[in-house]
């Protein structure tokens, strides 16, 4: 049943996202063409460009910028809206009477939300890549990357791959935990008889403050607060060790948060559900 939920969730969200991705792609290509024909040396030279072309470029860059922002905002809005509207308003009457388990409802929303977050990031990266085509050579790029690897290794004594992998892990886990934090806040809002949306916002703010406090305490315990001092002293090895600890520690904390948020959301939905 989880697969079916994911299928229908994807169907319900793709009708919003696909046109947006299309718009971003069209704007990217348009901007790229305007650049290529009107101002081929835009990125490299400071040669004055034709005023008409400048206006066209100005408009297409603005539209492009708006599309990128709209895409990012829309991804967040959809994550919130699909969870709230589909489960806790009138539509919830249907979703909760389906023969599926509560955790499947939560997980299907989470997985589809994550997929869209990833696709959104990927689309923006692709679009930047298209825009910057021609302003660098592939050879320079590969050379630059291999140089970065050797320099990183000689300075810190660990492979850059490890560092990238750990950072990616942190990004993935913290994305999950931030989505689940939205879910748990919405679920907590449902415990109130009135002003549920306000209560959800309140819950979100309270959780944020609590996490800030806990975070600062943990930083103090593990003496990670003076990372900037260590870096400024030029002690690369020690600094890298602290960064490792910081990244992996954050990943672990986020895993704990994910579990806590998920269980709390599921508990509320299962035992304290009270649709309006």
């Amino acid at each position: 049943m989880l697969g079916k939920l994911i299928k229908h969730e994807t169907r319900a969200t793709s009708r919003i996202f696909l046109p947006l991705y299309g718009a971003l792609l069209i704007l990217t290509i348009f901007t790229k063409l305007a650049l290529a024909f009107g101002a081929p040396d835009f990125f490299t030279d400071n040669v004055a460009t034709n005023p008409i072309i400048e206006v066209v470029l100005g408009i297409s860059f603005t539209l492009y910028f708006i599309a990128v922002v709209a895409l990012s905002v829309m991804t967040l809005v959809m994550i919130i809206q699909r969870f709230y509207k589909n489960l806790f308003t009138d539509e919830g009457y249907l979703m909760f009477s389906l023969p599926v388990k509560t955790w499947e409802l939560v997980l299907s929303k989470l997985i589809v939300g994550l997929i869209w977050s990833a696709v959104c990031t990927l689309m923006i990266v692709i679009s930047f890549f298209i825009l910057s085509l021609g302003s660098f050579s592939m050879m320079d790029l590969t050379q630059g990357i291999s140089l970065a690897y050797t320099e990183f290794y000689s300075t810190f004594g660990t492979s850059l791959n490890v560092f990238i992998f750990e950072t990616m892990m942190l990004i993935v886990v913290s994305t999950i935990s931030s989505i689940l934090m939205i879910y748990v806040s919405i679920a907590i809002g449902q415990l109130f008889n009135q002003h549920r949306i306000v209560a959800s916002f309140g819950a979100y703010i309270v959780i944020t403050i609590a996490l800030q406090i806990i975070g600062s305490i943990l930083m103090a315990i593990f003496a990670l607060g003076n990372l900037d001092i260590v870096i400024s002293q030029g002690n690369d090895g020690e600094a890298m060790q602290m960064i490792h600890l910081l990244i992996n520690g954050s990943t672990l904390c986020n895993v704990a948060l994910c579990i806590g948020f998920y269980l709390a959301t599921q508990y509320i939905m299962k035992n304290r559900l009270n649709l309006e």
Partner: peptide, 28 residues
Amino acid sequence: VDTKAKISYLSERSYLSDWMRVIEIIAF
């Protein structure tokens, strides 16, 4: 889950998503 599969429930609210076509809801 087992009882929900046996029950056909019509709520007092209109619980279908507005943007859907009838054929899509039937598929659902």
